[in-house]
Design a protein around this nucleic acid. Sequence first.
DNA 1: CTTTGTGCCGGTAACGTTACCGGCACGATC
DNA 2: GATCGTGCCGGTAACGTTACCGGCACAAAG
Lengths: 329, 329
Amino acid sequence: MAKRFITIKDIAEEAGVSVNTVSRALNNKPDVSPQTRKKVLEIARKLGYIRNSDAVLFRKGTTKTIGVVFEDSSNPFYAEVFKGIEVSARKYGYQVILMNTERDYINEMQAVDTLLQKRVDGIIISPTQFDSKDIEKLVKLNFPFVILGVHFENDELDEVYSNDVKGGYLATKHLLLKGRRKILMLNAFMYKSVARMRYEGYVEALREFGLQPYAMVEIEEGYESAFNKIMELRDIDFDGLFCFNDVFAIAALKALRLLGKKVPEDVAVVGYDDISYAEFVQPSLTTVRIDKYQEGIVAFEMLYERLMNLRTSPKRVLLDVNLIVRESA
Amino acid sequence: MAKRFITIKDIAEEAGVSVNTVSRALNNKPDVSPQTRKKVLEIARKLGYIRNSDAVLFRKGTTKTIGVVFEDSSNPFYAEVFKGIEVSARKYGYQVILMNTERDYINEMQAVDTLLQKRVDGIIISPTQFDSKDIEKLVKLNFPFVILGVHFENDELDEVYSNDVKGGYLATKHLLLKGRRKILMLNAFMYKSVARMRYEGYVEALREFGLQPYAMVEIEEGYESAFNKIMELRDIDFDGLFCFNDVFAIAALKALRLLGKKVPEDVAVVGYDDISYAEFVQPSLTTVRIDKYQEGIVAFEMLYERLMNLRTSPKRVLLDVNLIVRESA
DNA sequence: CTTTGTGCCGGTAACGTTACCGGCACGATC
DNA sequence: GATCGTGCCGGTAACGTTACCGGCACAAAG
């Protein structure tokens, strides 16, 4: 376990030259004779030299690393966004550090703090607990960051989010066009702007049909939570169900089956997100699709513009959504 | 965008003391008078000092970081293992860097290389393309690493893997006990030790019932691949299906439904892994459960023992598996 | 009064690497 | 022969931080 790495100093000694020359040789810089260069490279290989990239970056005053703060990377939604970020980051030579917060305020604070301490070049954050004040603090630091998936009032921010009002509208309208009139919305807590916007779309579609909102319940996120709520609502009369996300919808499918209600005959169900399992469940899920991979790519590119000073004014990107019609509605 | 961070030097100047004193004050070390300490801390806060953790670790010659090399972190199986690693790593004050390889040899090499260049303290790797020779190279570096999910012959290695022979045995035996005799195994490519071991269990169970292996096909990983294969095999006669993993099984469920075969009446299906969606599909999936979260925890702890020199001899951990019986078989 | 201790602090070096500058040797140019 | 350019190389400092040591001042102990 003698975990001692070879340094350029070791190479310099062995080659009988200075560390400067070694550095220049290894980095293909001028001011090194062909013979010296060859010798240095050979010795480096012989000794098993592995360059210390952190030392290089430290010296250069950058980390070529960005931080990503998500609530839960094992959630298929974020997993795919992350992949988009990671792929485009790698393309530009950036590393990505992922921080999970489990929707906990302390964790969210600490995640950002750790990333700042690590001197990442920028941060992509999908806030769950942060309010405008916390975001404000970040702005004051004059530190490059992009907000993903959430919309704040402050208009100095870089944000990528999807058109949730339209998504809610499309989902609800689809149910209405299928003749459903008693449409229940199974929503997440409304303190999240996403939940508010999807609800807004829901209301808008109903209004277009001259209807009042029928019913909306807010629940905690997670499969069990949704399953229990549907079982609880067994006596409520509804023929359409618009769920905040696919996890809710998949839970609802299971609960409705247990309650003896047929989907889509008795209740038509629409989800949101189009996670990969949406098409595998039975019946396959009609849902609103967000291009998660694309969202990740856009987020990174926006951050990159900041890092390179290609852009200094704030930018918002509103991603389009579309309805994927399958069997459940 | 004046991304200039405050350093202890700035604090030292403002406080009229040396950087040493500042360092000691900020780290609660002795040899600082209470007044000086107070003053330093105040100035640090006023100036918005954020310590450069990389510089600290650089100075200390450690990174307090480990690397994880997985084929695809958006795969729910690895996502959960990763969570186990991350949680226990954080408990010990370690950061985790995740590298995705997409089952590509070059990526796998580069991932390890990048991690070494970053001087991570250790690596957890779930190899897909590496053969014994590549592993050998790692061993020669005398670098702490743990292999996850795969078993190599070399017995100097630290490995965590699950009892795949038993898993294959349990799955097959269950099908046999349900009266199935024509059991097809939908396997991954046999160059993977995991695939070989699960097949071994399959053969063993059949032998116990005095039967020869019925049929086994090897396919590429992924949902489409499995779906297509089952559609292709429409004319093959089988009443039991043992799948290499749940993704295969879920794809098979869909294909069988399209082919008009009822599960479990016509074909009983058993998957492997018990990913979270296994219980949500219709019919819910009978499968072999690996405690993925636990596997991640164990992997980190084994690595930690190495890092702390608590253990110097190799160690293998074989995790138990068990059968989760649901509707599909 | 001298010694010994101790509380407090600063100087210097170091982690591994690269940027910057200066210098030497040699050949070419006047 | 003096000057200049250029190819090649090394010395020094620096990134931000901490370890180590030495030193000063003052109090306690002999």
